[in-house]
């Protein structure tokens, strides 16, 4: 099994427009086991997207290092696929060519042509190969962008709120879709979300982060069997635990006794 991510003592700072330094991540340590599904959850400003972008290699940490299977991450690479909240498909390419983009960029398209249709059917878009992105619904576009990332056989798939822009029903379908894809193509998946239910439904491990200073508050192991039920007592217990950690649990209800 490959795809183990190690985050070692990572600090990330940004210079703000007024010249002051903002600490976006404060000495973060994290181990993501190969083949597991890990979610980063927390309110905005907690550094979860910053951490994901560091793993993707789009930015470099101020100090500390991140490794994939022991190798230091130094810039973006197709073995760490990335899916954004917006599908960010190339609007001038058909869905087929969007999915084939990575193969063509790496000049292996000729040998692996058949994989394009394979991945299109994996996400259920085999009938939309010649459509253009603007002709697709939000959910379909997000599937296409998923296929585009998956075709590079990434060891790690990074998902930055991939389902955030979808309606509730499409969202639940896509959650099952993600799990199905993970069972078909084994890989590590790391997802940023601020939906507690989504994190609980999908993850083996939930990293709860808090803002100012941005740090890891808690790491929760989710040991429920799949397919998970959203009304399972364990599900609800973990849900309130996470909300409590994030201080979103609200006030305790006042005890009332009726005699």
């Amino acid at each position: 099994m490959v795809g183990e991510i190690n985050v070692k003592d990572v600090v990330q700072t940004f210079i703000q427009p007024d010249g002051s330094t903002l600490t976006a991540l404060d000495h973060v340590n994290l181990n993501v086991k190969a083949g597991s599904f890990v979610s980063f959850i927390g309110p905005s400003g907690c550094g979860k997207t910053t951490l994901l972008r560091l793993i993707a290699g789009l930015t470099k940490p101020a100090s500390g290092e991140i490794t994939l299977d022991g190798e230091k991450i130094d810039g973006p690479h197709y073995e760490r696929g990335l899916v954004f909240q917006n599908p960010t498909l190339f609007p001038w390419l058909s869905i087929y060519d969007n999915v084939a983009f990575g193969l063509k960029a790496r000049k292996i398209y000729k040998d692996k042509k058949q994989e394009v249709s394979e991945y299109l059917s994996l996400v259920g878009l085999e009938n939309f190969a010649s459509s253009y992105p603007h002709q697709l619904s939000g959910g379909m576009a997000q599937r296409a962008s998923l296929a585009r990332a998956l075709i590079g056989h990434p060891k790690v798939l990074l998902l930055d709120e991939p389902l955030g822009a979808l309606d509730a029903f499409t969202r639940m379908n896509m959650q099952d879709e993600l799990l199905r894809i993970r069972s078909e193509k084994s890989m590590t998946m790391i997802m940023v979300t601020h939906d507690v239910d989504e994190a609980l439904y999908l993850s083996d491990k939930i990293v709860v982060m808090s803002p100012r200073p941005a740090k890891i508050e808690d790491i929760i192991d989710v040991k429920m069997f799949r397919p998970r039920q959203r009304n399972n007592p364990e599900f609800l217990r973990l849900r309130s635990q996470i909300l409590k950690t994030l201080h979103y649990a609200g006030n305790e209800p006042e005890q009332e006794y009726v005699i």
């Binding site: 810039g75 696929g81 063509k104 990332a149």
Partner: peptide
């Protein structure tokens, strides 16, 4: 960013992403 995570190099990004868009 997406094209660089898909394995596109600098010139590929210029001519296959920058120019068409």
């Amino acid at each position: 960013e997406v094209s660089s995570t898909l394995g596109a190099g600098y010139f590929y990004r210029i001519f296959k992403v920058g120019v068409p868009s």
